[in-house]
Each structure stands twice: as C-alpha cells, then as structure tokens.
Design a protein around this nucleic acid. Sequence first.
RNA 1: GUGGCCGUAGCUCAGUCGGUUAGAGCGCCAGGUUGUGGCCCUGGAGGUCGGGGGUUCGAGUCCCCUCGGUCACCCCA
Length: 420
Amino acid sequence: MSQQFQAPPGTFDVLPPDSARYTELVARFAGHASRAGFGLIVQPMFEDVGVFQRLGGSTDIVRKEMYDFEDKGGRRIALRPEGTAPVARAYVQHRPSVPWKVWYLTPKFRYERPQAGRFKQHHEVGAEALGTDDADLDVELIALAWFFYADLGLSRVRLLLNSLGDGTCRPAYRAALQAFLEARRDQLCDEHKDRIADNPLRVLDCKRPACQEATKDAPRQLDHLCEPCAAHFARVTSGLDALGIPHTVETRLVRGMDYYTRTTFEFAAEALESAQNAVGGGGRYDGLVEQLGGPATPGIGFGLGIERILLACDAEGVFAVPESRTDVFIVDTTGQAATRLAHRLRQAGVRCDRAFDGRSMKAQMKAADRAGARLALIIGDDEAAAGTVSVRGLQGLRGEGGQETVAMDDVVDYVRGLLT
RNA sequence: GUGGCCGUAGCUCAGUCGGUUAGAGCGCCAGGUUGUGGCCCUGGAGGUCGGGGGUUCGAGUCCCCUCGGUCACCCCA
C-alpha cells in the first residue's frame, strides 16, 4: 500500500476556482502600487539567517518562530519570516537611487501552531520605500494600503496608529518605562516579568488583564517624543486627515519587530471574530539599513496578509470573484478538428477549451455547459464533410439555444464578433 | 510549546443498546435521446470507517496510543 501525502501542517493548497481571488487580489494591489510609483521586487524565499537575527533578537518571530536550517553547504538559512529585512538587504546590496519604492508578493514562513487565520506559510502583498523620512511618504504608504482595502469592498477596517520615537527620544523613554515596570514587577504575568530588561515595550502589548491593569498608567512613548519625532507624527496625522483616512491613536501598539521607529500602524478587521484580526501592519524603520551594513537610510513599509484579508472579505460578504473559465468550448466528435481550431482561437485571443478522450457529443455538450462556455462550436461528421462548424449559443449569450452554420475558415472571426 | 473539541465515499453528513452484505444527498461516469448542455428518470463507479494496538463470540460504535484537522493561549498577517 502506497503512502498518501498531504500538505504539511499549517499549509494549504489553493485550487481553482478559489485561486481566482488570489490572482484578482494581487492584480488589484499591483495596480494601486504601480499607480503610486512602486515597482515589483522579486526576491529569494530564504536568506542568510543573520539578515533576520541581527535585527529582531528579542522578538518571538526571530527567537522561536523562524524556519531555519543548515543547507548542504553548511550555510545557516532561514525561510523568510517577514518581508522588510530582505528588502533592506537588497537595498544595501544594490544601492539603488532613492527614493526607492518597491512592492512584493511573497510567502512568509513562521513555525507556530496553526489556528484560525494563522498558518505556517501564509502570503502577503507589501510595499517598502527607502531613502527619505518625509512624513508625506508615511501618509502615502498608509493610503496605499487603506484604499486597497476599500477597493476590495472592505469597510470595517480600523487603522491603529502610534509613534515609537527614534534614537534620540526612545532610550530615555525606555528607561522610564523600565523603572515603572520594575516597580510593579509583582503584578505582571510571569512571561513578561522576564521581558522588562530586553523588551519593555512588549509588556505594554500583553493582553492579560493583570498586565493590562498594572500598566494602565505606564508612561506613553507618545508623551515622550523629542521635538522632531513629535512634529513628524503630527504631520502624519494631519496628512491622513487631509485624505479622509480615519485613524485611532493606539499608544500601546508595539508590533512584532524591533527595528521599528517613529510611525507604526496596524489594520484591524473588525468583521473578524477570531483573535487573529490584524489584516496588515507596518511602520518606519529608520535604523534598519544601517544595522544591515548600509549607509544610514530611512525607510517605511507594510505587509498585508492575503489569507486574512480574504477571511475579512468573507465576513463582510464582499470581493466575491466569479470564476471565469472559458468563453468557447469545442465539441468535436470527429477527433480531427479540435486541436487545430482551439489553436487558431487561442492565437486570436479567444479563451477556449475542449474535451478529450473522444467522448460522446452529449458528454462533450455537458462539459461545455459545466465549463461555463458562452458558445459551443460543434463539429460532427456532417460539418466535417461540409467544411463548416455549428455555432450554438449557451448560457448568458444572446440567442441562447440558437444555432448557426458557419464555414470553418470564417469561424474564428465570427466567434470574435459574437463575443465582443 | 500548552490545552479543548473533532476524524465514516471527492464534498456535506447519517449510522439506534456493540450485532451479520456501512447508507443518503451533492459531485463524477454511462444510459434514457445512435448529432446537442441545463431539468427529470434509471443504473454504475467510488470506503482497509485516519493509522496501530486492546476489550469482546462480535468494534464505525468501548479503551489506550499515534497521526491529522480545528479552535483557544502565546504571537502575529
């Protein structure tokens, strides 16, 4: 007995017709991104593990959720757990002129237990822009994501916004927060007692009631911004206002990677019941390129989770993409005509399909119907002898059920005329 | 990594108190109509009941283990 395999835990196959939503979603995002001056970046699925380790050492994503291994050449490799660091790595490697604006479609891998809206491999579309710290760019990125969601039909998405400060104001704030947390160490949950030293901001993000209560009056980064950071944030919020993008300032919003500075944001789908309601997130990372060995270069970007977006669309009842498989189906019982006719139609830009295995006319007509074709092109013995094709209208096309006889030589043009 | 729930046909599910050849609907194939789809009718194919072990005269049903799924914690897209 042969072994049956299935997709590894936490992964999945997306088959037609469901995959039509993926292609349509990506096409829409590509449209928004290219209209905003972003070009596609295609990158490896894996990187030297150091690309990720060097900048997220105290985050769970890097500490315990990374798919890393040694390859046959003894290199330490990690499947990409996130998309920003590889883009920064590419920037350092190629030094493109700035501002450098790229968008991507990528799978992301995280070793964690699957759950509603959470997988070991999921897919994101995203955008990154490097080379300027102008707050207008922050607004442009956020607007790109925001109006992309709107384009899909989503209306119940909430933008959460925060500023984490920079190298000037963050250290002082961090120290003040650590002092505050140390004084209340006993009230924190066990897990976060240990995080005060290495990642105090993370404690603010804890959802346990005990932690929430203990940190209720904790100092807020937003109140400790230096003057330039405060001005930057004010320009971001006023820019969003100018575009009519509603936002909620969420002072506890920390996000998953250590490299974020200044603007951070997250998009929460309120239609999703599950705990996994973040459909996108991102922020500014003005120190990242330098940490990866490049020149000091500011940057900002985001990633949007395709699977969660589709879940949110289902919950809101929007973005139903009808499967559209073919326009024309060739019913050929002679076994002599279908191959050439299909080729001619396809070369002429007509979507067409056909049956195989020499099935009966009835079976081929059934197949034509199931394929969603608007026209059946019938070639039986009579047509073959006369050099003609019977063109029959199927569902959706005017004259449905009607049938006409057309010369084989003219049928491609005739069909194109009917379909336009 | 921790915990709850669930595994019967390709899909959605039924299966009585443990009882003899494991069912339905949908889907698929064929026929009804030797050249015509949808609707209808008839028939057919398709299952080691997730896997292994145990209890029993007898296990889809009870017990243990295991694998898988799912949901939650954690974390995030």
